[in-house]
Design a protein around this nucleic acid. Structure first.
Lengths: 244, 244
DNA sequence: CAGTGGTCTAGACCACGTG
DNA sequence: ACGTGGTCTAGACCACTGA
């Protein structure tokens, strides 16, 4: 009998299947948007019953890794799906529906991770990272200025031109160019006063209260793959959140 | 064949069972913290298989209406459970663990709903509402000033003395005194400058950037049961959010 | 029509908590 | 030892999609 009971010491079969599917996703066996094999096929492959595969897929669908479509099949979730888009952009207009958003890249350079970035990305101090700066426009008004850091090894040779050429969201771009899908993220939100640079970019008075939103985003297997700090104007918009 | 296909026109059995259980909860048949009947008993009561009841309870547990405890039974979720507490208070210290929180009620009066409050609570303009003002202290420092509105019919004869006598959270109090459990909430977050009143209460300079957090909270059946506006100091704390 | 996921059931057995 | 929820399986049938 084990003395320290902190480890579960029992892993249900459907969780093991779940892990195997996540591993296959991390190995890029099926890419974002593609259909994965049917429940029957996976049951044969893993040598379990169809019901057990079903349970595993159910949980992965609940975590937004997979999307079920009755009659068609089960697909790898993708940010290209518009429903997925506003799960990660929570700034919405006070009145009116969903805004048209447009990303305007300003800068893209490779540098070495400082203490803060290294810690946020769980990489060694001094490792190469890509720094990206951009403005996000909602209905063509500048609403967010972002500073984004990416571990360079996951995004080889990302250039400003690639960013400028895309009219899709950043995460959609990361998927299609590098096969890196952001699965979940954590945000820390504070209220700060606009500094001169942010004020100019957002077309506001210096000192205007802004939301500071720090985000760490994770890909399959809870690997940190992005850290960013955004300054959000909340004059005619607000950050919307749902508490479950 | 129905022409407008917008209505599902097919409601799975387990969803119907789900609805019946929620109805029983809304009818206060089982109170927060109490155990509900076993899956077998409910299966007999609703004349379906145990597996179907199981599926219904699974979904309600995922929505935090019920809590399963293996070997013991299934219980009505309650805010008295410390795990539930920080689902609704997302302000955490920049460094260090969970803070000790303490609510300091300032005022409690009944008045008539203005346009804004009536709309937020989905009640007629002019209906009686209870207005509550309070300060929330984290580790004994004032961090949040709240203005809270409640539909008076759900909280009969709530007094300032009752609030002052309690050392538990507001939502725990609402459960034990009125059987009203807050199930989910929506928040709208903005950055604002501290006005003189808030600045004094939070012990900050006038003009300090603060988070303005407007919350509508819902009880069983998505009935709005609270609206509040809080001003959060984010000098040494931040609002933490997880994006799924 | 065939193939996919979705629902419902029944039964066997496991893990956990309490007496 | 008993009752609770938790897992796994097998099979029948329903609902949706697309060729």
């Amino acid at each position: 009998m084990s003395s320290h009971a902190s480890v579960p010491a029992f892993r249900p079969l459907y969780r093991q299947i779940q892990d195997l599917i996540v591993q296959a996703l991390a190995d890029k066996e099926w890419l974002p948007g593609e259909m994965i094999p049917s429940e029957m096929d996976l049951a044969a492959r893993f040598e379990v019953s169809q019901g057990t595969v079903r349970r595993a897929i159910d949980e992965l669908a609940a975590e937004n890794l997979l999307v079920r479509r009755q009659g068609k099949g089960t697909f790898v979730a993708t940010h290209a799906d518009p429903r997925a888009f506003f799960r990660f952009l929570r700034l919405v207009p006070d009145e009116g529906g969903v805004p048209r958003s447009r990303s305007e890249p300003l800068e893209c350079q490779t540098l070495r991770a400082g203490q803060e970035v290294a810690k946020a990305l769980s990489i060694p101090y001094g490792d190469p990272v890509i720094q990206l700066r951009r403005i996000l426009r909602l209905d063509s008004k500048p609403m967010v200025v972002d500073e984004i850091y990416l571990p360079a090894d996951l995004f080889p040779d990302l250039t400003l031109d690639q960013l400028k050429a895309s009219d899709r969201s950043l995460y959609t771009l990361f998927e299609s160019l590098f096969g890196v899908r952001m699965v979940r993220a954590e945000e820390k939100i504070r209220a700060v006063a606009a500094d001169p640079v942010a004020a100019q970019l957002l077309d506001l008075e210096v000192g205007t209260p802004l939301l500071s939103v720090e985000r760490t985003a994770f890909t399959y297997g809870d690997r940190a793959a992005e850290w960013r700090r955004g300054l959000y104007s909340t004059v005619n918009h607000h950050y919307f959140n749902e508490l479950g």
